[in-house]
Simulated scan of single mutants.
Amino acid sequence: MPRLLHSVSIDLGARSYRIAIGSGLLADPATYDGLPAARSAVIVSNTTVAPLYAAQLRAALAGRFAHIHEVQLPDGEEFKNWQTLQQIFDALLAQECDRKTVLFALGGGVVGDMTGFAAASYMRGVPFVQVPTTLLAQVDSSVGGKTAINHPLGKNMIGAFYQPQQVVCDLDVLASLPPREFSAGLAEVIKYGPIADMAFFDWLEQHMDALMARDGAALAHAVRRSCEIKAEVVGQDERETGLRAILNFGHTFGHAIEAGMGYGAWLHGEGVGAGMVMAAALSQQLGLVDAAFVQRLTALVQRAGLPVRAPQLDAQDNAGRYLQLMRVDKKAEAGEIRFIVIDGPGRAALRSAPDALVRAVIDACCAA
């Protein structure tokens, strides 16, 4: 029996929508009540997720759409590119999909980002629904309307802000996640504490063992609170002109790790995990937090099964390579890198820092 445990609203005026969090939601036809009427739906998934859940979603949608098509993309961050995006457009055009066609993103962050970008672009915008199947996507990438593909020179550099009609977070699907993917999602859960809610950070310290064991009640609370914090931030700053940048805590370093190692070598959440430790260390060097805070965060990241030491990206000038990659970042301005730092526990700010200081942090935080 489906159970809707929580409902979180993203308040954006005419673009507002609901995040449904619960068990058995994906396969329940009632979950999709209220969607725009359309002749066709397209389920976009990947070769890993589609065999597990596409048939359930198709059955749930069968009474709502006359035609349901499927697109299966290759699985992996390395395929989050223009060539793979074209596969979605090819399918939409081949099936003569019109501008009322509803796209369903069934998968993790890569599928969600690419489906959203395709929806934003096809016929200048068609409706889409996020059905995230990873923890990372449920607590972060499926919420807030950021859609994008990667470029060899930078992560998520080509995309659009485009809000979904609905987000469906079925907690049951998290049982099929490999341990490494599950831990990667916990990085995006952990970030919400230092930037916005230290009571949630305290709760995570107390319940990390339960989360690692995938306890249902713990997962429900973690997903709900993460979505609430993100909803509050996105509601105030939809297009990341200011406040929303705090959601990128750890990401400037993390994106450099992903690009420098080659997309897919490190999972996004693994880069964010090590990146948060680096950003916290930078915050300490700027005099914003003390060593005890950095140690607390590092310990929690480690308990989540995530790396706390960043990789070497260049044998000759490792810090220089990091700086080069971080200058290709959406928060950079006129070549100046700006970092999300912790301006006291539970508060975040966007700051620049001298290259020499950043180099020292990189040297201290990277594995030998």
Rank of each mutant, 00 (worst) to 15 (best):
T252W: 01
H251Q: 01
I246F: 11
F249M: 09
E238T: 12
V272Q: 13
R239C: 04
F249W: 11
G260Q: 04
E240C: 05
E258S: 11
D237R: 08
G242K: 08
G242M: 04
N248G: 08
E258Q: 10
H268G: 07
L267S: 15
A231Q: 04
Q236A: 05
V234H: 05
T252V: 13
G235D: 10
F249E: 08
G260L: 00
I257V: 15
A256G: 14
G262P: 06
M261P: 14
N248T: 14
E270R: 01
G269A: 03
D237W: 04
I257R: 13
F253C: 07
V234G: 03
A245N: 14
L267F: 15
G235W: 06
G264F: 02
E258T: 13
L243D: 08
V233G: 12
A259M: 12
E232G: 08
A274H: 01
E238R: 10
I246P: 00
Y263L: 09
I246R: 10
Q236Y: 00
L243A: 14
E240R: 08
A256L: 10
A265H: 09
G273R: 03
R244V: 06
G273T: 10
H255W: 00
D237Q: 10
W266G: 12
G264M: 04
T241H: 13
W266T: 10
G242H: 07
E258K: 05
A274Y: 05
G264H: 02
G264S: 05
L247C: 09
N248Y: 07
G242E: 07
E238I: 06
E232K: 12
G273A: 14
I257D: 12
G250P: 02
G250L: 07
R239P: 03
E270H: 03
G269C: 08
D237L: 12
A274V: 13
H268V: 09
T241R: 14
I257L: 14
R244E: 03
G250E: 01
A274M: 08
T241L: 11
T241P: 09
E238V: 03
M261K: 12
L243S: 02
V233C: 06
E270T: 06
A256R: 11
F253T: 13
E232R: 11
W266K: 09
A245K: 12
H255A: 03
L267P: 11
T252G: 07
E270P: 06
V272P: 08
F249V: 07
Q236R: 15
E240V: 07
W266L: 15
A259E: 01
A274Q: 00
G271E: 03
T252C: 13
V234E: 03
A265N: 12
I257C: 15
L267W: 01
E270W: 00
H251N: 05
H268K: 07
T241A: 14
D237I: 05
M261I: 04
A245Q: 14
E258F: 06
Y263C: 08
H268W: 01
E240G: 11
G254R: 01
R244H: 11
G271M: 02
G271I: 00
M261C: 15
I257N: 09
I257S: 15
W266H: 15
E270K: 05
G254E: 00
A259R: 09
G273D: 03
A231L: 00
A245C: 13
L267H: 06
G262C: 02
A231I: 02
Y263W: 06
G254M: 02
A259P: 11
E258M: 12
R244P: 15
G250T: 04
T252H: 10
